[in-house]
Write a protein that binds this DNA or RNA. Structure first.
Lengths: 123, 123
DNA sequence: ACTATTGTATTATGAACTTAATACAATAGT
DNA sequence: ACTATTGTATTAAGTTCATAATACAATAGT
């Protein structure tokens, strides 16, 4: 797990989002136990309170739940994870297209630009 | 000009970004005078200090410059605007593809998903 | 039974952000 | 010359965020 944090948004929100993505992408398997708050905080080099806040935030999504003294676990509801992945992907795409649109790129322009950039990256 | 602000990031940063986009998209024409700080603040329903901070921030990009008492103006350097538009678009695309990738969608998957969503939106 | 580990709560401090209320210097327009 | 408008600066207050330093209750593991 590599933590990629900046100062553009609250750190706890960035952490919550990243763990969210890691669950959705399957990096964290359903039913798995998460490292402890203190350990995750150490890994991410943030205060335990900040990590706690991030995880509490994540809990509201239903993707994780805490078992008092045995730790925090990823949900085993694979359908839910799948649904969230689809929803989030759709949201990301709409948000992205909207931003491109506000720059003057219509969806078709955007698609072509993406393809152009992908071609360039291959070299 | 409709202002779309939320609490996820500093307001001044969101304003700076939106004006930036409006210049890049051509909504604000090169050489044009911007409304005054106080008027823009009233439009966006934020404090004049906040709008001032947003515009000062924008000035660092070189897209606008202030003329003491006659107001703030959009740069006339259309080449610069064009260049910034291209750069920003490329950045947005890369950032987007990276996020999709962290969710488990490879670029080709993402392209197909976008096309699927565009088809769905037509109906 | 004991102990370490778990999530959680509390209090304090400092920084960043936002609003508010003013004030000032420069100058465009009259 | 006068006046209103411009960008800009200052000071104060309140909120959110992050860190720090502890502390507590519950329980898994021994």
């Amino acid at each position: 797990m590599t933590w990629n944090l900046d100062s553009s948004r609250p750190i706890y929100a960035q952490i919550a989002e990243q763990v969210h993505l890691d669950i959705i992408s399957g990096l964290y398997q359903p039913g798995t136990k998460l490292p402890s708050v203190r350990e995750l905080a150490a890994q991410a080099k943030v205060n335990p309170n900040t990590m706690q806040k991030a995880l509490t935030e994540l809990e509201r999504s239903g993707l994780v739940h805490s078992m008092r003294t045995s730790g925090r676990f990823i949900t085993e509801d694979t359908d839910m994870i799948k649904r969230m992945k689809e929803d989030l992907a759709a949201d990301q795409i709409k948000e992205f297209l909207e931003k491109m649109s506000s720059m003057g790129f219509q969806p078709q322009d955007t698609l072509q630009l993406i393809e152009k950039i992908l071609r360039e990256e291959k070299s």
